[in-house]
């Protein structure tokens, strides 16, 4: 087999899988974000530290995300809307999955592009119709992948990336959410 390189260190992931089988405590991660209201519906969210492998961890640098709403919502549009951040999460998670699965299956990728569309009936959040939910009604992801593989193998890559995706799971299955005032 020719060596293929999608830039994913699959061996490290497989080693981690083996190591964590016997150490479930180390596998417990906590991801954190801190948000701060700016003005109007504009806020900033910073992320740097997280917990995992039994200790505090840190990203190389702090990331700052700006969230706002567009002008059609009578807002200043300093950044994308919170619900768009879900699309960022989903698309990047599935893309990472495609690359990892391809690496593991010996498939060389040349390009992986996708578009994500979330259909959202905003009457829900406006309280205009109590039968309409607040969140997305449905989300559609379309991948275009150029790789040394058959169409079927590419479909299998995309299916497997959904099967192992944290964000796909978080969006398709219910999660307990607790919101408190400190």
């Amino acid at each position: 087999m020719t060596t293929i390189d999608n830039g994913v260190n699959v061996q490290a992931l497989l080693d981690a899988r083996e190591a964590l089988k016997g150490a479930p405590e180390a596998a417990q991660f906590t991801w954190r974000a801190s948000a701060k209201w700016q003005n109007g519906v504009h806020s900033t969210v910073t992320i740097q530290s997280f917990h995992g492998l039994g200790q505090e961890q840190s990203h190389k640098s702090e990331s700052v995300f700006t969230a706002d709403h567009p002008e059609v919502f009578a807002a200043e549009d300093n950044g994308i809307t919170p619900i768009e951040y879900l699309l960022v999460g989903l698309a990047s998670c599935l893309t990472a999955g495609v690359a990892s699965v391809a690496q593991n299956r010996g498939i060389q990728l040349r390009s992986v592009e996708s578009t994500v569309e979330g259909n959202h009936d905003i009457r829900g959040i406006l309280g205009a119709d109590s039968d309409v939910r607040n969140g997305y009604n449905d989300i559609k992801v379309t991948f275009s992948i150029d790789a040394d593989a058959s169409k079927e193998d590419i479909e299998a890559l995309v299916a497997q990336s959904q099967k192992r995706s944290a964000v796909f799971d978080a969006l398709t299955n219910p999660t307990n959410v607790t919101v408190e005032v400190a």
Binding site: D138, E152, E155, A159, K163, F168, D169, T172, N173
Partner: peptide, 14 residues
């Protein structure tokens, strides 16, 4: 119920 029905179909079909 999970919203991932389409993918379990794809996996099984593949």
């Amino acid at each position: 119920f999970s919203g991932g029905l389409r993918n379990v179909f794809s996996l099984a079909d593949l």
